[in-house]
Design a protein around this nucleic acid. Sequence first.
DNA 1: AATGAATGAGGGTTCATTCAT
DNA 2: GATGAATGAACCCTCATTCAT
Lengths: 195, 195, 195, 195
Amino acid sequence: MDGFQRRREQKKLNILEAALALFMEYGVQKISIGEIAKKANVSQVTIYNYFESKHNLIHEVFVYYTDKALDEFEQILVSNMAFPEKIKHLMFTKNETAKQIHEDFYQYLMKEYTSGINYMEKIYTEKALPRFIDLFNQGKEQGYVDPNLSNEAILFYIKAMNEYIQREEVYQSILPLTEDIMKILFYGIVGEKEK
Amino acid sequence: MDGFQRRREQKKLNILEAALALFMEYGVQKISIGEIAKKANVSQVTIYNYFESKHNLIHEVFVYYTDKALDEFEQILVSNMAFPEKIKHLMFTKNETAKQIHEDFYQYLMKEYTSGINYMEKIYTEKALPRFIDLFNQGKEQGYVDPNLSNEAILFYIKAMNEYIQREEVYQSILPLTEDIMKILFYGIVGEKEK
Amino acid sequence: MDGFQRRREQKKLNILEAALALFMEYGVQKISIGEIAKKANVSQVTIYNYFESKHNLIHEVFVYYTDKALDEFEQILVSNMAFPEKIKHLMFTKNETAKQIHEDFYQYLMKEYTSGINYMEKIYTEKALPRFIDLFNQGKEQGYVDPNLSNEAILFYIKAMNEYIQREEVYQSILPLTEDIMKILFYGIVGEKEK
Amino acid sequence: MDGFQRRREQKKLNILEAALALFMEYGVQKISIGEIAKKANVSQVTIYNYFESKHNLIHEVFVYYTDKALDEFEQILVSNMAFPEKIKHLMFTKNETAKQIHEDFYQYLMKEYTSGINYMEKIYTEKALPRFIDLFNQGKEQGYVDPNLSNEAILFYIKAMNEYIQREEVYQSILPLTEDIMKILFYGIVGEKEK
DNA sequence: AATGAATGAGGGTTCATTCAT
DNA sequence: GATGAATGAACCCTCATTCAT
């Protein structure tokens, strides 16, 4: 990539970052191209030169965001924490990237076009899911997890928890309960039978 | 209430229902007053006569929806199912009312004005929460639940699950896992220690 | 007029008064039929029953107002003040009726239809003008007025002054200058030649 | 100012002129942005790009008009007419700019926001008033004006006359009376004592 | 390649007026 | 006769998008 290309790429990044920040704060529909242009210090037309339409811009922002989120996810998995610790992080980490975006983004992509969703599912199936499976299998080998449980069910739990936690007001109130929640996950609401 | 009042009330209901349906399907911001008017078979101005502004309409739709959701919730609690069955329903029932509304509605109300949220929290704290507590306490007395667990943590689980399930694509894929998920909830991922 | 007619007439008066008050305070165009209806404690349709259209209502309000103003004017003329005193009053009296109405009313009537103006001119020519002429002729006979001056010119002065004074901010600042202004009117800016 | 800027400025002027003409003829409230756009041969949005809101447009039109009126006023003062001639012009000149604007504009600015009025008063106090005072003082020195008269009173007369004359129907009927009116102003209604 | 200028389409809202009871 | 309910038309304003430089 020559200097020219690089500058172009940098400008594109600026726009993506500006759009992402605004989308996350105010939602996709409330943000106008003009606002993104102002925040990114370019003209509206420049955005059209790079992204062709608002629709398209949203799509690219989404891809950009998904990739970033995947990175954070992998950071946790490759770390050398013990199994329960990793689970805890997966459940309770409030992705820096994720924040509030889910709700509106998801909604928009669901309703407006499916290509964004497809991309996310592709990434998820190809990249994230196998890593989860590996993790759970390790957990079973190490005796942390009942071998009869389906990985999907466990995964479901973790995702539900994590998504719920992304909501600011939920996150605040959940911190004091962390230990109890982990206990439920490991031992269920019935509790440990023998101590 | 005389015939006049009743017809008026009925028309208001029509509009609320039309708006609710459209909001749930397409989101609050994408739906114009004109579209609601067309669906409810009234003129736009009629909507303004009843609700004064779109803002206000959204608020009233929200209250209407919240009340309906509360009803469904209470249906489950007063039924004569056994404790585990009730929990299952609370977690897995895809509220007819709830559907997808959460995401966009929540977003809108969070961002635009807080009175809607306040109403929901009031209803929740005054009506729903005490019922939950009662239920969990019964569960503890009946030996279903470890008495050392905080009710909040259990509640958190149930709400996270239920909210996650509201999403259509999640709901589809989760049904086969129901049993495993209930098992995790009761016995944790470690599984039952003694069989 | 029987009791029925009388009640009807009273209701009409109520509406006229309400409309007049609102028109004077906010101008003709800013006031909606709904606002007048609310202020007069009747339904909008009642106003239509009595006045047929907003246009017409404005016309009748104008006539009502003109007649009232004429009364005030005649009060001054029939009083037993001396000539200079009467002139002073005609110039400086801030008609209770007149207030700010002139500007917007006049504008509206000028542009929208001429019948209002016609009515005012008719009243003016038939009723007010002859009284003015009488007054000036008395003034000439009594030596207050140069017999060579045309009555029209004097009248012009008085009307210009009076109209200007109706404006609130003008009225406030003019009071201290009353004496000087009267002096100019009587003796001109050259001043009295012999004292 | 480069060609860009100049064209922009020219277009702004076009819009201002169009708006001013329409406002003067039909009043501020009756004129829609659409009508101004059509008259100025631009799209509605262009007007918004330049002026941001109707409110703002009105304000700028007002400033534009005030400045123009000030120019005309100064033309008279710097001319080499004799004192009585200047006074005559000040009283009887139907400002090309002024026309009917006063009534509606004034009303609007009075009621809606005061910044317009403030601007006019600032211009008036800083620019116009001192020139008037100079003129009157000259008149006193040259024996045209009684030195005991307050300048304010004279000014009041002139303004009242001039404003009254701006009304079309008044202007028509006043022309034949010009000489008499000037005589009243200089010598009062009592008339010249010695000839 | 980048931008300032311009716009058609559409959204929320108000108002004078009519309909139906 | 009086009213609550309903409406078509119009207005101000915003936005995604294109034009012209």
